[in-house]
Simulated assay, not measured.
Amino acid sequence: MVTTNNALLLLLVAASGFFDAKERKIPNKITFTGILIGIIFNSITGGWMGLLEGVIGMVAGLAIFFLPFVMGGMGAGDVKLMGAIGALMGWRFSLMTALYSALVGGVMVLGYLLYTGKLKDTLKKMILSLINLLFHFLNQLGYNEKIERIQQRFTKDGQEYKKIYIPYGVAIAGGTVLVLVASAQGFHIF
Results as ranks from 00 to 15, higher is better:
G46F: 07
G47E: 05
G47T: 04
W48E: 07
M49Y: 10
G50K: 03
E53S: 15
I56F: 15
I56C: 13
G57T: 14
M58R: 03
M58F: 07
V59C: 11
V59I: 15
G61H: 05
G61Y: 03
G61D: 07
A63Y: 07
P68I: 12
P68Q: 08
V70P: 00
V70D: 07
M71D: 15
G72Y: 14
G72W: 15
M74K: 01
G77P: 00
V79D: 01
V79N: 02
G83T: 06
G83S: 14
A84L: 06
I85P: 00
A87H: 02
L88C: 11
G90Q: 07
W91K: 14
R92G: 12
S94Y: 03
S94W: 02
L95P: 00
M96T: 05
M96R: 04
T97F: 03
T97D: 06
L99I: 12
S101V: 05
V107K: 09
M108H: 04
M108Y: 03
L110G: 08
L110C: 10
L114P: 00
L123Y: 09
K125T: 08
K125H: 10
I127D: 01
I127L: 13
L128N: 09
L128M: 08
L130V: 11
I131L: 11
N132H: 04
N132M: 07
L134Y: 07
F137Q: 07
N139P: 00
N139S: 15
L141A: 08
Y143N: 13
E145P: 13
I147A: 08
I150L: 12
I150S: 03
Q151R: 13
Q151N: 13
R153Q: 06
F154L: 15
